[in-house]
Each structure stands twice: as structure tokens, then as C-alpha cells.
């Protein structure tokens, strides 16, 4: 299933009152960040989008694709791969080696050249994390950062889904800037839930969540773009320090 935009029709907040944002359309190639305090409803918004909710979740939000209600089968089944979803809570649990699993998975999805596909995913993941992953590494032996990196690489390379939802991936000790670039390289509808100021400002606009509702929609201002550039420098500096500390160097 292919489409150019999604439209979110606002529902209700935790008190049952109409949320401020009543309608919001996000097109391909656009990155929106979702920000707000813990418990403000960020993940709930992401879940509504993942499910292509039709007024049937607690928030009563409705999600349309290209202005139309998506067919029921697309809303339900991951077989149709509309949404790629990455969260900090996801883990690998399968008792298989990385390469083995990725090839099995590629066959499952009928991706041609399964072996090559697996190889590319592992290579891309290794560009994001510290200690390299190999074909032989058991999935369950991956560290938090390695798991996250592998999921990101997998999502980026087997990227059929037009919508990408990213929920707080900044805490895993991976290069978040490189991760974002890997994920959003091509024309996708991207929503990033984050507490990280750099990621928050990297989008076109940001959705502010409060008390379960979408309370505000802010475009990135000129001044914020300057702040963003400054944050990027700080991030690069911080990463370099991190790299040197990890390598056992003194500063």
C-alpha cells in the first residue's frame, strides 16, 4: 500500500476534552518530532498512528491516508507493512545468530538475495554502534546499543513502510545523528518521540503533548535553527569525548 500523506484528526485528552490540534497532515519526506513530559501521551499518539486508529482507541483519534480511511486489512496486519516502529522497549528474543535470523526473516518477507540483505544490515548497524556485530553473534547476546543499531539498520534497509515511528532511541548509546540519517534517508513520513533537544529540533515541526492531547504545533524558528547548529556541534564534541573515554584514553 502506497500513499503520500497521513492526516491525524484530533480526539480527546485524558480528561475527555477535545485536544487543541484538530487536524494535522504530514507528507512524505517530512520529519515531525513529538515532545512533552513523561506521561503526556507521546507513545499513545504513536500507537494511534501505528494502528491507523479510527476513533476506536481511548483518544478517539482518526488517522487517514491520502485523506481517506485506510482499508481494514491494512490497519490490522503487519503483513502489509505500513508502519515501521522502533522503540526503546523492543528487544531481540530469538535464540539464533544474527546472520541466521536476518536471512530467515528476509526469506519470510520474500526479499531477494537474503544473504546479501543480511550482510548489508549488519554492516549498516556497525556504522552506528561501538563494538561490531558479526554474522555469528547470537541475537540475545547483543548489547542494548547493538540491538538498537541492528533494528535501525533493518528498518532502514528493508524499508517498505511509508511511515516510520521512532520512540526514544537516544538512550541506547548509539550515534543518534547517524541513526536518524540512516532511517530517514528516503521519502518517508517520520515521527520521532524524543526528550533529546537535538532530535526534537531536527524535524520540520514539533508536536507538543500535554495531558494526553496534542496541545501545540510549532515550526522550527530561525533562532531555533541556530540553536540546532550549536547543539549539533556540542553533540559532535560530546561524541568525540565519549569515543575517547570508551577507548580508554585520558582527556
Amino acid at each position: 500500500m502506497s500513499f503520500e500523506s497521513i492526516t491525524i484528526f484530533g480526539g480527546v485528552d485524558k480528561d475527555g476534552k477535545d485536544e487543541s490540534i484538530r487536524e494535522l497532515t504530514i507528507g512524505r519526506g517530512e520529519i515531525y518530532s513529538v515532545i512533552g513530559f513523561t506521561g503526556s501521551g507521546k507513545s499513545r499518539l504513536i500507537r494511534d498512528i501505528e494502528q491507523l486508529a479510527q476513533g476506536d482507541t481511548v483518544t478517539k483519534r482518526r488517522i487517514l491516508t491520502d485523506g481517506k480511511i485506510p482499508e481494514y486489512k491494512y490497519r490490522r496486519a503487519p503483513e502489509f507493512k505500513i508502519v515501521a516502529h522502533l522503540t526503546q522497549n523492543m528487544n531481540y528474543i530469538t535464540d539464533l545468530k544474527c546472520g541466521e535470523f536476518l536471512r530467515l526473516r528476509a526469506e519470510c518477507r520474500k526479499i531477494p538475495a537474503a544473504a546479501k540483505n543480511a550482510e548489508r544490515i549488519i554492516m549498516t548497524a556497525n556504522g552506528l554502534c561501538g563494538e561490531p556485530i558479526s554474522d555469528e553473534t547470537p541475537l540475545t547476546a547483543l548489547s542494548g546499543g547493538q540491538s538498537r543499531a541492528l533494528m535501525i539498520a533493518d528498518t532502514a534497509i528493508n524499508a517498505d513502510a511509508p511511515i516510520i515511528l521512532i520512540d526514544e532511541i537516544e538512550n541506547a548509546g548509539i550515534d543518534k545523528k547517524a541513526a536518524m540519517e540512516t532511517l530517514v534517508g528516503n521519502e518517508k513520513i517520520v515521527l520521532v518521540v524524543t526528550h533529546d533537544p537535538l532530535l526534537a529540533l531536527s524535524g520540520k515541526r514539533r508536536i507538543v503533548m500535554r495531558n494526553g492531547g496534542m496541545a501545540g504545533l510549532l515550526g522550527t524558528t530561525e533562532r531555533e535553527r541556530d540553536v540546532f547548529d550549536r547543539l549539533r556541534e556540542l553533540n559532535a564534541y560530546s561524541l568525540e569525548i565519549q569515543r575517547r573515554l570508551r577507548a580508554g584514553e585520558t582527556l
Partner: peptide
Amino acid sequence: MVSQAETEV
């Protein structure tokens, strides 16, 4: 709680 790739499989 599980990677999307595994859920698919």
C-alpha cells in the same frame, strides 16, 4: 516488547 522483524516472523 519484541523487535518488529521477529514479530513479522
